[in-house]
């Protein structure tokens, strides 16, 4: 019971974090058709900038400035790099962001070294929020969750009720028609890219204080974020939220389960035979936690390529 509760909280928080990073990615992909490999690198930069700025200004100011800096970087990437290669097609854009991810990874290693930095949570949040059955839930986990939820709500309201949100939603399906109605689609692309980058940066600045801030954090999260975007459906914020939570919960809940394929064959009386073969039959579900998202993604891509809530494939 206690195990279930911790897993639930951890899974929810991790899922919300995933959502913060994938929200921007799914919007950018849905609207511009660009699969941004560098998106999780922006998340990592958010964490490192939060750490660096925080040493001068304190945690809270850094939490504001780091995402802004990342947004500025995202905007420059769109304006000066992506727009340049746009006429060569989506593959070229994808390669560009792929290269950028490599560069950012190396620059972070150059500046901060190969090991994680000591980015820690501020003392006022370094407490236990509450205690259930002798189990402590750290306040900071709830803080991460709260940031993600308020972000989702404001993003949702912006998309639903503002004019910019309306134009963004329209541009997700018919960018050229939006331009033909007199709107500046180029600017909307820039804006979406900047907002997506800011969200990733914010996620990094918040999460980096809790999880380790190291040069591999982009790589570790990057492919899972792709999974979220595909499973949720490209361009769909609601889909991204559902997929993030599902994958967050799934990965934390399966950590403690030592089911095996051999065990599953027990009702057929084959478990002894399967266990003797070993290999894939004796791998426990818990050790598959890292692989699970990719299995889900393959399944979704093959069965329902538009994703859970996608409008089109």
């Amino acid at each position: 019971m206690t195990y279930l509760l911790t897993s639930l909280v951890n899974g929810l928080v991790f899922g919300l974090l995933l959502f913060m990073v994938s929200a921007g990615l799914t919007l950018i992909f849905g609207m511009m058709g660009v699969l941004n490999f560098a998106h999780s690198s922006l998340y990592m930069l958010g964490a490192y900038l939060g750490y660096s700025i925080g040493r001068w200004t304190g945690f809270w100011t850094a939490l504001l400035l780091a995402p802004l800096a990342v947004a500025l970087l995202g905007a420059s990437i769109e304006r000066f790099m992506l727009r340049r290669v746009h006429r060569h097609g989506h593959a070229q854009e994808l390669l560009l962001t792929f290269g950028l991810a490599l560069i950012i990874h190396e620059i972070v290693k150059l500046v901060y070294g190969p090991y994680p930095v000591e980015y820690t949570i501020p003392t006022e949040l370094a407490r236990t929020a509450f205690n259930v059955n002798g189990l402590n839930i750290p306040l900071y986990r709830l803080f991460i969750g709260a940031v993600a939820v308020s972000m989702f709500v404001s993003l949702f309201l912006m998309m639903k009720y503002t004019r910019v949100g309306l134009i963004v939603r329209a541009a997700l399906s018919q960018p050229l028609m939006v331009e033909s109605l007199g709107h500046n689609v180029g600017f909307i692309f820039l804006l979406v890219f900047a907002i997506g980058a800011a969200l990733a940066g914010l996620a990094g600045a918040v999460a980096g204080a809790f999880y380790p801030t190291g040069p591999n954090m982009a790589e570790d999260l990057g492919s899972i974020v792709f999974v979220v975007v595909v499973v949720g459906g490209l361009g769909s914020l609601e889909g991204a939220l559902v997929a993030s939570l599902a994958i967050g919960l799934l990965t934390t809940l399966t950590v403690g389960l030592d089911w095996t394929l051999a065990g599953a064959l027990a009702p057929l009386g084959l478990s002894g035979w399967a266990a003797s073969i070993g290999g894939p039959f004796s791998i426990t579900l818990s050790s598959l936690t890292g692989s699970l998202p990719f299995i889900i993604m393959l399944f979704v891509l093959l069965v329902r390529p538009a994703g859970l809530m996608g409008e089109r494939a």
Partner: peptide
């Protein structure tokens, strides 16, 4: 394109590009 539109020429393409995920009222607001 957008400056030509703002100068006063509007265009309805052949393939009726409505924004399928937006409501009728939202399409009009666009």
């Amino acid at each position: 394109i957008r400056n030509i539109v703002r100068a006063g020429i509007a265009y309805v393409p052949e393939d009726r590009l409505v924004f399928p995920t937006l409501t009728v009222a939202e399409n009009l607001r666009m």
